[in-house]
Write a protein that binds this DNA or RNA. Structure first.
Lengths: 192, 192
DNA sequence: CCGCTAACGCAAAATCTTAGCCTTTAGCTG
DNA sequence: CAGCTAAAGGCTAAGATTTTGCGTTAGCGG
């Protein structure tokens, strides 16, 4: 779906940029159910058939745009400690994704039915950022948990809650999850 | 979206059952992108306008069917121990939801939720089953973790992986997650 | 500079979606 | 139990979207 086809330069790239831009512009000014392929195409200065041919349908186009939106634009902030870095990253993710707009991004991503690609890209971006954070910690001489465990204990609960649970998470929950991850021997429940 | 309107009996119920049945039948024999409202309506012996009026669009209809499919049909299995009950439930959930059909159910559910609201019914069903399991444990004299913690540590990682990660989870991961939850004082990482 | 081909534009046809109006039927009341 | 009321479904026509075939354009290599 993503135009990683054999001819990425020139006109193709311009069209992709124009269409992505049109989607972003429309998302900012209209509710989602009013966004249609012909509308996007018109805004992008392109014919609808071009959009249908390249993206298949609106769902996949939105998923592609959502994935592009998630691509990290900078390395994760360096606060000087593993906990600080993780809390900062988790808080940023939580804040971005629990807004109505962010929720729509996640939804579009999941809804894109194609070979799991757009949703997979999202996870890949997250892991990339976490790799950077853990690599930094190792360079400091620390022994951070594996990225998979961070995803499992911190990112997954945040994402699940945003998608499925009515009560919103507080910013403090991000720190709570990170602390639970980093202190596996704390004893919050009844004594064993 | 669900026809919990003021007139649940009689014809309404018949139409709803016919439409749900038609969706299930079509899902079993066709790829999802070939399922359309007119197709469902024809199979259900109903006119398309009826479907549009009651469900709005195909996405919401599929979400409604998915939610109905998820409604637990029985109390969770009683294995005699908290760990056994949780592992059995988590394994069942994992097995059901990681199949292609199950993944579609989750996808439809997320995609069809109201614009700014979460796909709450799914989470509610899960919590209901977990409540039953933990209540049973308390009746045994045990002190199970709160349901929220089980969701966070077990159900959320499973669901996240199904939706966002290309590599499938193994059945054993369900047990691993339950064990990690129940033994918070194990020391799998370097000493603190 | 010339040819090759993927990608786009255009326009017609097919399909899906919406909306108005009428008919049916479940639930209620006398 | 007959009759009333309004919610819900059927039908049809108008409108919008999606698909498809064919000609054209523009990036790329020789």
């Amino acid at each position: 779906m993503s135009p990683q086809g054999p001819r990425p330069g020139g006109r193709s790239a311009r069209v992709q940029a124009a269409v992505h831009g049109a989607v972003l512009a429309l998302q900012a000014e209209r509710p989602r159910h009013e966004i249609t392929v012909p509308l996007v195409a018109a805004r992008a200065g392109v014919t609808p058939s071009t959009v249908y041919r390249r993206w298949g349908d609106l769902t996949e186009l939105l998923a592609d745009v959502a994935a592009a939106r998630l691509r990290p634009d900078a390395a994760p902030a360096d606060t000087g400690s593993l906990r600080g870095d993780l809390v900062a990253y988790a808080e940023q993710y939580l804040e971005e994704m629990s807004s109505p707009a962010g929720r729509e991004v996640l939804r579009d991503l999941v809804a894109g039915a194609a070979p799991a690609l757009p949703a997979g890209r999202c996870d890949a971006y997250v892991r990339g950022q976490l790799e950077a954070i853990t690599a930094r910690e190792r360079a400091r001489g620390g022994a951070p948990p594996p990225v998979g465990e961070i995803v499992e204990r911190v990112m997954a609960p945040i994402t699940y809650t945003i998608l499925f649970v009515a009560t919103a998470l507080a910013l403090a929950d991000a720190a709570r999850l990170v602390d639970a991850l980093l202190a596996p021997r704390a004893a919050p429940v009844s004594p064993g």
